[in-house]
Nucleic acid binder design. Structure first.
Lengths: 335, 335
DNA sequence: CCAGAAACTGGGAGCGCTTCCAGGCGACCA
DNA sequence: TGGTCGCCTGGAAGCGCTCCCAGTTTCTGG
């Protein structure tokens, strides 16, 4: 703080000013033992006098530790990250990383270029750990799981169970939502699924099926969406023409629910009078639709937090167990 | 790709296998001149055979270039980043960084710890450049502007004009919105401001004042909010009791507009019949309120993109000019 | 008061890569 | 054929830090 010098202050200069060897200075910086009290203090004084800050790069080279972890998001759609979902994940991740000396790197592996970068990252240990969010169970995911860098997954890709992951209880949440519909006395309950090549999509569909099986109801009214608002509209229209008798629909995302809601209203069906609907995700918009959307909330920040924690534990040599975070039903006026 | 060896492959190994010196190998890796065609090819072959990937850390140490830039967000509220706004900025930033060899680091400087980190970053050149989004014109911002690392600001802090920044035209957008209200024949136009300790807050207020001045209308109906939904509710209630005659209000954020809308409806005022309202930001929810919100859209991804571009230009020694991105009115049913 | 243990100390060898530099060598021109 | 120029080439010196190791000092306890 004292000296706004242009040049970077090095450990050698600190050592010299303190009248000790570089080794000694290094020891006090990393507060390692075997330094006399006098020298330790001399070094500390020199550090503040000179405004010394260790050079992270040099340290990384010497210790073979990058001092950074990366949050990698692999997808074919450059816009995915615009989803507020990830912003929340980042907040969670950051909250635990903040207690650490670790830096956070962001890798949006959307193009081939990004994918390559991720691969190299995995192979060359440029980061001390990676948090991977990959929607598709592509080869990249499996590669990541096998890499010798600690990797924890956020969410599970479809068709592939990583060794370490934290996921929201999508299946349980879907079951909850569907049961809620059953409890409301609905009997002809349809669903609009998400992308079935994503873990969340298949899991939520499974939850729907389970709940109806338990209730002894028909789970045959299904249309496939893609998590988007337009997809929801299309799927709802399809549902309406194939199964005009439906009296409720569980929709695998709020975005789709918003699209579906519009189609329903346009078709003259009242919500929840004629058909009750419940969404998933609890996005902010869900409370502002007409009627406000009953939906399933998942603890997104907690997801990020737990990913970071699990990564830490992995990095310190432990073998954590996968974690599934609870989801809960948020009841509003659409049911 | 060929060899999944545990150990990192080094330049020396490549050189040895290719039968050249390390210097030569280095030259071809960085495709520098002064290497014969034969050797160049030999090295290239060795690279793919061995699956060599340069060690970024070592390179960084040798070249004194980190190979990374950071996006720093300084705020006193750990939750700011949960705002989808930043997610979009990141998408924009990433889109240009993807063409580069640069890594993206994220620094959410919310705690004191984070602040310290940011300061050190600025002083020690651990990154080759920083994109700084700081709402308050605190000392940190000024420090950043003076740092010998290239720094570009996203948005302008209040009370302080950075040398390099890209910002949305908040003032122009606010003027647009207010003029729109005037055009609709409203004459008793109030405003709910954002936080006046943020650049966006003051700029939008200024735009409001300008528009009314031009129209020769009274700009005295103002209540201060804090950009949040609750703050909007409170401010609207205040407005209603202080200036019950208002027939329109320009609200400095959609979040506040949503809160205000509820208060208005509860108070029995119809929108836009009794009072027309326009928000700012064009968040997704804005299209789902009842009635859908007229608002001002700002090109957020473009903001990120331009920040990254400006930073690049700065890093390559140029002296770019500040940039102000246009905002535009999105007309919906609330006016 | 002495042997042995324990704590300190600084030298030096890296970590993997870039880059300066001096020497070598072939080509080209007169 | 000799001289010059310019392009290769590899050796070696770092970039700033960690950490092993051997040597020195200080401190025990008997």
């Amino acid at each position: 703080m004292t000296d706004i010098s242009r040049r970077q202050v090095t450990l050698d200069e600190v050592a010299e000013r303190a009248g000790v060897s570089r080794s000694a200075a290094s020891r006090v910086i990393n507060n390692a033992p075997h330094v006399s009290k006098a020298k330790r203090e001399a070094v500390q004084r020199a550090v503040v006098d000179l405004g010394y800050v260790p050079n992270a790069t040099a340290r990384a080279l010497a210790t073979q530790q990058a001092g950074a972890v990366v949050l990698a998001i692999s997808s074919d759609n450059p816009q995915v990250f615009a989803d507020p979902f990830f912003a929340e994940v980042v907040v969670g991740v950051n909250s635990v990383l903040e207690e650490t000396e670790l830096e956070l790197m962001l890798l949006l592996a959307t193009s081939t270029r990004g994918q390559t970068r991720l691969e190299q990252l995995l192979r060359t240990r440029q980061a001390d750990g990676v948090m991977m969010m990959s929607t598709h169970g592509d080869t990249l995911a499996e590669l990541a799981d096998k890499a010798d860098v600690p990797v924890v997954f956020g969410g599970r890709p479809v068709n592939f169970e990583p060794r370490f992951y934290v996921d929201a209880d999508n299946r349980g949440g879907a079951r909850l939502a569907t049961e809620h519909l059953v409890d409301k006395g609905r009997t002809r309950i349809a669903t609009i699924t998400g992308r079935m090549d994503e873990g969340a999509g298949t899991a939520r569909f499974k939850g729907y099926q389970e709940a109806l099986a338990v209730a002894g109801l028909d789970a045959g009214r299904v249309a496939h969406g893609d998590f988007s608002e337009d997809g929801g509209s299309r799927a709802m229209a399809e549902l309406l023409s194939e199964h005009p008798d439906l009296d409720a629909v569980f929709i695998a995302s709020d975005q789709m629910a918003i699209g579906a809601l519009r189609v329903l209203t346009d078709a003259g069906r009242s919500v929840p009078g004629d058909v009750a609907i419940v969404g998933f995700n609890d996005i902010p918009s869900a409370r502002h639709t007409a009627p406000p959307l009953t939906t399933v909330n998942q603890p997104i920040q907690a997801l990020g937090r737990e990913m970071a924690r699990m990564l830490q534990s992995l990095m310190s040599g432990e073998t954590p167990s996968p974690l599934i975070l609870p989801t809960r039903l948020i009841q509003r006026a659409s049911t």
